[in-house]
């Protein structure tokens, strides 16, 4: 699935950096009904993780009240150059990944 990641390309060692992620997902709550009364089954992202060179730096659990195409913004400390890996896990075996690299001077 499409994802948009915003990580600064460069940072100074020790800087607090903001990471912004946006991913496409319908986030169907499981509380809605179709016009003929059938319940629309829940289909949401349940968990998000961010790993910085393999170390988990941020994790979030997501719930039915969260809007479609969830946008998450969080902070971490720039320690070393490398790769940030993002993973979204959800209902019906949903899994999506993305990554971004950062240069720390």
């Amino acid at each position: 699935m499409a994802a948009l990641i915003n990580v600064p390309a460069k940072a100074k060692r020790g800087d607090v950096i903001e990471i912004r992620t946006l991913t496409s997902h319908i986030m169907e709550t499981g509380f809605r009904h179709t016009a003929d009364g059938a319940l629309v089954p829940r289909d949401i992202i349940t968990s998000f993780t961010c790993r910085y060179n393999g170390t988990e730096v941020f994790r979030a659990d997501l719930f039915p009240a969260i809007a479609a195409n969830p946008y998450l913004s969080f902070f971490t400390v720039a320690k070393e150059s490398g790769k940030l890996e993002f993973e979204w896990i959800g209902d019906n075996g949903y899994s999506s990944t993305a990554s971004a690299s950062i240069t720390v001077e």
């Binding site: 499409a2 994802a3 948009l4 990641i5 915003n6 912004r20 946006l22 991913t23 496409s24 479609a68 195409n69 946008y71």
Partner: peptide, 14 residues
């Protein structure tokens, strides 16, 4: 204004 927070850009990517 920010293309990484504009959810419409997800559809542009698709």
């Amino acid at each position: 204004d920010d293309d990484t927070s504009n959810p419409g850009m997800l559809f542009v990517l698709d």
